[in-house]
């Protein structure tokens, strides 16, 4: 099952600070989105907001036409959203396998321990270890596996390649391609614009909380987005 996501004139605040201004975008069922932008542009805020972790917002968000509950992570989870958070934020008192088990929800779907282990065989080898003993790449895989265990329709991946070696980044993206092939929509936040765009249908660039660029993702590179990314006028 796949669902659509619509965001209309969304603004969001952290206390007094406005982190998102009038953001609108739409994601058709099964489509994937690359979400890019400089540091502090509001990418994480948007993903966390969708998951119910930022309660203070205005605007309209619908999943398959149904409005998203405000500040309710459980509702977001059962509506089909799952987050691979920036910094992974794994449960360190739980083993690898327990992290995956905790991620499971009441939603039905293809992802269980066995399929996650097929996607990331290294996790099966380490199933009884603590996440803190894993390498950065393995931790990122565990974070993805934990989010997948909820059988989401839309997987939100924040800073997916941060701190990983190029080789490992390749592995992670290969796994994401398999996830996408299963019909899961991806929203990928990454500093590596070309890579994120190559894995998506559509690209949205944020600049100081606003949408500064929106287009098909095919072939978009960092150089092409320079103005939207940094906000400098690059007139030629």
């Amino acid at each position: 099952m796949t669902i659509s996501l619509r965001i209309d004139s969304l603004s969001a605040w952290h206390d007094q600070f406005q982190a998102l201004r009038d953001v609108s975008l739409a994601l058709e069922p099964g489509q994937s989105l690359a979400l890019v932008g400089a540091n502090g542009a509001g990418k994480s805020t948007l993903l966390r907001l969708l998951c119910g972790l930022v309660p203070n917002w205005q605007g309209e968000i619908t999943l398959d036409g149904k409005p998203l509950a405000r500040g309710n992570p459980r509702a977001a989870s059962s509506a089909g959203l799952a987050l691979v958070p920036e910094g992974r934020l794994l449960f360190d008192s739980l083993t690898v396998e327990e992290n995956l088990l905790v991620g499971q929800s009441a939603r039905k779907g293809p992802w269980d321990l066995a399929t996650v282990y097929t996607l990331f065989p290294v996790l099966a080898e380490r199933r009884l270890q603590r996440p803190s003993t894993l390498s950065g790449g393995q931790q990122q895989m565990l974070a993805i596996g934990r989010a997948l265990s909820a059988n989401p329709d839309i997987l939100l991946c924040d800073e997916i390649s941060l701190g990983l070696s190029p080789l490992v980044v390749g592995e992670v993206y290969a796994a994401l391609a398999q996830v996408r092939a299963q019909g899961v929509s991806l929203v990928i936040v990454d500093q590596d614009v070309s890579r994120a765009c190559a894995a998506a249908d559509q690209v949205v660039c944020l600049l100081e909380g606003r949408v500064s660029h929106q287009s098909a993702a095919q072939g978009v590179t960092a150089a092409a987005l320079k103005a939207a990314y940094f906000g400098v006028a690059t007139e030629q």
């Binding site: 989870s77 934020l89 360190d92 929800s105």
Partner: peptide
């Protein structure tokens, strides 16, 4: 147990635990 898993997850990272559907 499952309950124990939830308890430990909650004590590690309450925010993410809630995201995992833990009440």
């Amino acid at each position: 147990t499952r309950f124990g898993r939830q308890v430990r997850a909650l004590s590690d990272r309450p925010e993410i635990a809630e995201l995992m559907g833990i009440r």
